[in-house]
């Protein structure tokens, strides 16, 4: 269970520690996606350690748990980092990321880790799965909420909007999406490859309650997550403006680090910048 008295400072400290884990596990793996992991980690930290989600590391499949789906599955280092911090997996496992004969798959895999809620990595699928879980909660009279993080590039997939339409049609008030709006996809800037604007009015038009925040401001993140928990009549989305590679100077806004692991010397510099 999560602790009740958490200060913003503590959360920011945890996020910094998890950033160190992210760059370290990627450097050891020698491949993977730093940019989108670092843009997402403040939000994941708030979700798991900011008294938002209810879960039980001793019983990852506890029926009443809140669910979190990382639809932008390539940011799995961020997910593994919070799962280790929460006690779902041992910290040593982080250094096995992407290695053969381990459960630490390069994208989230339900078959390999019980704490993973959905296998993702083919972009666009998570919100539909989350909607299914949210509808099941309603049928079963369960109190849980489903959180799904999607990417801005990922939002170009048609399935995201099919899920968006269905979620409001079915009044899935227990479904919350979080858009990691870091303004880059694989080939370049979102605005140049395929614009998703005006994104707030799109979600509003699809019947969702929308709140825009700075996705690196812990107070704004927590406020928005608590707002989402209180939003029960319609699905809610937090449009989080973020910086790809946030926290490591040479990765920030540098899309080269979308899918490239840091070298040993880059790791050392990153760890120095992220020191407590």
């Amino acid at each position: 269970m999560v602790t009740s008295d958490v200060s913003l400072k503590q959360l920011e400290r945890t996020a910094r520690k998890l950033r160190r884990h992210i760059v370290k596990m990627l450097a050891i793996a020698g491949s993977g996606h730093p940019g989108g992991s670092l843009s997402a980690i403040d939000i994941l930290t708030a979700l798991f350690f900011g008294n938002v989600m209810r879960y039980n590391p001793q019983n990852p499949r506890w029926e009443d748990r809140d669910r979190f789906i990382l639809s932008k599955g390539h940011a799995v280092p961020a997910l593994y980092a919070v799962l280790a911090e929460a006690g779902f997996i041992p910290e040593e496992w982080l250094w096995q990321l992407r290695k053969i004969d381990t459960p630490m798959q390069g994208h989230p895999s339900v078959k390999d880790l019980p704490a993973v809620e959905a296998s993702t990595g083919s972009l666009g699928q998570g919100l539909s799965i989350g909607l299914g879980m949210a509808l099941a909660a309603r049928i079963d009279g369960k109190p849980y909420r489903v959180y799904v993080m999607i990417g801005d590039g990922e939002s170009e997939e048609g399935q995201v909007w099919e899920a968006a339409m269905a979620a409001s049609h079915f009044h899935a008030g227990n479904l919350t999406a979080i858009l990691d709006y870091n303004h880059y996809q694989l080939d370049g800037a979102i605005g140049e490859i395929m614009s998703i604007e005006p994104v707030v009015s799109k979600w509003e038009a699809f019947g969702w309650a929308v709140r825009e925040i700075d996705g690196h401001d812990m107070k704004q993140i927590l406020d928005a997550l608590h707002w989402a928990r209180e939003t029960r009549e319609q699905p809610s989305i937090i449009v989080a403006h973020t910086v790809k590679g946030k926290g490591v100077s040479f990765m920030e806004g540098n899309n080269e680090f979308h899918g490239k692991a840091p070298t040993q010397s880059e790791l050392e510099q990153a760890l120095a910048e992220l020191a407590d």
Binding site: A29, R98, H107
Partner: peptide
């Protein structure tokens, strides 16, 4: 393709 795993 290696490390990316099954989804890719």
């Amino acid at each position: 393709i290696g490390e990316d795993g099954v989804s890719q």
